[in-house]
Simulated scan of single mutants.
Amino acid sequence: METTHSEPNAAHVHDSVKEYYGKILKQSSDLKSNACVPSAKPIPVYIRKALTEVHPEVTAKYYGCGLAVPECVQGCRVLDLGCGSGRDCYVLSQLVGKSGHVTGLDMTEDQLEVARKYIDYHMKTFGYQKPNVNFVQGYIEALRDAGLEENFYDIIISNCVVNLSPDKASVLREAYHVLKEGGELYFSDVYSNAPISESLRANKVLWGECLSGALWWEDLVRLAEEVGFSKPRLVTASVISVGNEELEKLLGGYKFVSATYRLFKLPKHSEKERCLVMYDGNITGLEEKFEFDAGYIFKVNEVMEVDGDLANILKNSRFAEEFTFQTQAQGNTTPGSCWAKPKVVPASPFKLAEQLGSASVASSTGLCCGPQESCCK
């Protein structure tokens, strides 16, 4: 299926974004809109601690929208698409540990200069004898051209960058190629409530502010399927209030959200059978519960029913060792047995954002999902 609109000239977009993030913006306070919103979910203590260890100059040039730090990353190879000054890379450097590795890729040399400047500082701070972080200049639409290996990374993250690309389909295709089987693309980005018009997509400021290049959220679902990824799992969403009268006037009736999704590269023809699972509580920092997405909150040692898509993900990814699996038939053999059910959540990130009460984007903690529904109630 063809996209609902043509993409702007790639070279012009790349040059414009390089200028905007390399020359015009000096720190996050220079942004003209509120597109860079905080996470709608509370930030776990272990991540908050890791954030405090990042050098202030690196943090000052952070332009993300949400939190792109997935769980269960110890020892993993992680790639950050559009890493900028390296904030998320240095957070993940601490979480993957000495046995893991983080690669940051960005096309803007000015941003990479800041990221590279503080490699030694962070390695000393973290107590590492040798760096577990490196930075590569390249385009997120052409990862293999930048020298990145196919079937190499366990996890790819991205924080408010895909919207800046003139070719989203190529970004997803390249991510799919360099991920290992069972690997995950975990990313926060800006989405629109409808396809953006050609005239607005040509506006350099709106594009640089992460607005006019935003995907219509339904296009993400379609593109992911076309590339071969699993159905996108919606983790959280926050309403974006543009906060600039001039830009709001230009945008007219368009609405935007920041949403976090997780996509997995799974074995071809793998089974998708609904089953029962129990979280073992062994993921660092999440010993009591693990919020996989907006619908599924796994409590330690509590049996939960999962749909076929999620069962396929859990069995064929790095999460396989974190769960005990059984079929529903096995679960039904125990008289009086019951298990927790997932929350019913909307497919639309706009409806989820409303459900989470995230219109108050000024809050740095936001609201998390409510208590898990259980069939035992």
Rank of each mutant, 00 (worst) to 15 (best):
M1Y: 14
E7I: 08
E7R: 15
A10H: 05
V17D: 06
Y21H: 11
L25E: 06
Q27K: 15
S29Y: 08
S29V: 15
L31R: 14
V37Q: 06
A40P: 12
A40G: 15
P44H: 15
Y46P: 01
A50W: 04
E57L: 14
E57W: 03
V58T: 05
T59I: 08
K61L: 11
Y63C: 10
V69T: 15
G84W: 01
C89L: 11
G97S: 04
H101S: 03
T103L: 03
T108N: 06
K117D: 12
K117V: 08
Y118P: 10
T125L: 13
Y128C: 03
P131A: 15
G138W: 01
I140T: 03
A142I: 01
L143Y: 10
L143K: 07
I156M: 03
S158G: 08
S158R: 12
V161C: 13
V162D: 06
S170H: 10
V171Y: 09
L172P: 05
H177Y: 01
K180A: 00
G182K: 13
D189V: 00
Y191C: 12
S192A: 15
A194E: 10
P195R: 11
E198L: 04
A202N: 07
W207R: 15
C210S: 13
A214Y: 02
W217P: 12
L223I: 13
A224H: 00
E226F: 05
V227I: 11
P232F: 00
R233D: 04
A237P: 06
A237Q: 02
S241F: 02
V242L: 04
G243E: 09
E246H: 01
V257A: 06
S258R: 12
K265I: 02
K268G: 07
S270G: 09
E273F: 08
R274Q: 13
L276N: 05
L276F: 08
D280P: 00
E288H: 11
K289Q: 09
E291G: 03
A294H: 11
Y296G: 00
Y296E: 07
K299D: 11
V303I: 13
V306M: 09
A311P: 09
A311H: 12
I313V: 15
I313S: 03
L314C: 02
S317A: 06
E322T: 02
F325N: 00
F325A: 01
G331H: 10
T333E: 11
T334Y: 07
P335N: 03
C338R: 14
W339C: 01
K341E: 14
P342V: 01
K343P: 00
Q355L: 14
S358V: 15
S360H: 12
S364E: 06
T365I: 09
C368T: 15
C368F: 06
Q372T: 15
Q372S: 13
E373C: 04
C376P: 00
